[in-house]
Amino acid sequence: MANQVEHSLFPDLYDCFQSERFVTLSTVDFETGGPNVSAISWIYAKDETSLLFAVDQKSRIIQNIGQNPLTVVNVIANGSTYSISGKSSVLLPRLEGVPLKVSLIKLAIDEVRDVMFYGSKISVEPVYEKTYDKSAAERLDRQVLEAMKRA
Rank of each mutant, 00 (worst) to 15 (best):
E129D: 04
K58Y: 14
T32V: 00
V5Y: 06
L145S: 12
N74T: 12
L92S: 05
V37A: 12
S103A: 05
G34L: 15
L100M: 07
Q18N: 11
S89E: 15
T24I: 12
V102D: 04
F30W: 13
S83D: 09
L70E: 13
I65D: 06
V127W: 02
R113Q: 13
F53V: 05
G97I: 04
Q57D: 08
I109H: 01
A136V: 11
L140M: 11
L100H: 05
L145E: 10
S41A: 15
S26N: 14
E129P: 01
N78C: 11
P126V: 08
K130Y: 14
G86Q: 03
M1E: 08
N68S: 14
P69C: 10
A108V: 02
S38V: 10
G79M: 13
S88E: 02
I76Y: 12
K101I: 01
L95A: 01
P69W: 13
F22Q: 11
E48S: 11
M1S: 12
K58F: 13
P99Q: 01
P126S: 04
E6F: 10
V98L: 01
P126N: 09
S50C: 15
S8Y: 03
E31G: 03
G33L: 09
I122S: 14
V55H: 07
K134Q: 14
K149I: 06
S19M: 08
A137R: 04
V72K: 07
S26D: 05
T131P: 00
A136D: 11
A54W: 00
F30T: 09
I40V: 12
S59Q: 06
Q4T: 02
R21K: 12
H7G: 03
P93A: 00
E6T: 08
L25P: 07
Y132T: 04
K46A: 06
T71M: 08
V112E: 03
M116D: 02
G66K: 10
I84E: 00
R139M: 03
D29P: 05
M1D: 08
S41Q: 15
S19D: 09
Y14H: 08
A151Q: 00
S89W: 09
V90Y: 07
I62C: 03
T71N: 07
S8D: 03
L13A: 07
L91A: 03
V72D: 03
M148H: 02
A77Y: 09
T32A: 00
I84P: 03
R60V: 12
M148V: 04
C16D: 07
V5T: 15
P126D: 09
Q143K: 08
M148D: 04
G34D: 14
L145H: 08
S120P: 02
P99E: 00
L51V: 09
K101Y: 13
L25A: 04
V75C: 06
V37P: 07
A147K: 01
S123F: 02
A45R: 06
S59F: 07
K134R: 14
S88M: 01
V28D: 05
I109Y: 02
P69M: 10
D12E: 13
Y118W: 12
L140D: 04
P35H: 15
S120R: 10
Y118K: 13
T81P: 01
